[in-house]
């Protein structure tokens, strides 16, 4: 994502009270992962599988952390099994921050299926979400996403795309 958008995301996570981050870096949010990893405010747990990342975030919440899982939207398909088991089955909140591959502007053919699946899958998992294409709205979206997640004890999602990714 663009550097100023990544900085907005860092600020937004802090303002939201999220200090525990897990995830699997992808082409769009790689620099966000790097910023989180370098910032002592955050506990950062990189994983090789988004499902494991979700389980780790859920366990951290049980210990009192507010958490976010940062991943490409393809990772939602991997994490879906554990979101269903843990959150639909017990009610545990985790904020999901997803690259919206396959959104308008996509350049890669392999990103198209990710875009086709992500919103219906979020709906199937009963996860409210906001698509953020303007970096100026990112901080507010993350704050609101965590507020709702904690209130409903179930994940929420922020999908990033558009002017968060491209300068044109």
């Amino acid at each position: 994502m663009l550097d100023h958008a990544a900085q907005e995301a860092i600020t937004g996570l802090k303002e939201a009270g999220i200090d525990f981050v897990s995830g699997l870096p992808d082409g769009w949010q790689r620099n966000l992962h790097e910023l989180v990893e370098a910032d002592p405010f955050f506990e950062y747990v990189p994983v090789c599988n988004e499902g494991v990342g979700f389980s780790i975030c859920a366990g951290a919440w049980l210990g009192g952390k507010h958490t976010v899982l940062v991943m490409e939207n393809s990772g939602l398909r991997v994490a879906a099994e554990y979101i269903a088991r843990i959150s639909l089955g017990t009610g545990v909140p985790v904020v999901l921050m997803l690259s919206y591959r396959g959104d308008l502007g996509e350049t890669e053919h392999w990103g198209i299926p990710h875009g086709i699946v992500v919103e219906p899958l979020l709906d199937a998992l009963r996860i409210p979400y906001q698509i953020v294409r303007d970096p100026a709205l990112l901080r507010r979206a993350l704050r609101r996403a965590n507020r709702l997640a904690q209130a409903q004890l179930h994940p929420t999602a922020v999908l990033v795309s558009g002017d968060c990714i491209w300068e044109e």
């Binding site: 525990f20 897990s22 506990e43 747990v45 499902g51 494991v52 990342g53 979700f54 389980s55 780790i56 975030c57 859920a58 366990g59 951290a60 919440w61 049980l62 210990g63 009192g64 952390k65 958490t67 554990y82 843990i86």
Partner: peptide, 10 residues
């Protein structure tokens, strides 16, 4: 996975 998260949180 959940135990790892819990252990890191506490």
């Amino acid at each position: 996975g959940m135990a790892v998260g819990l252990a890191l949180a506490l």
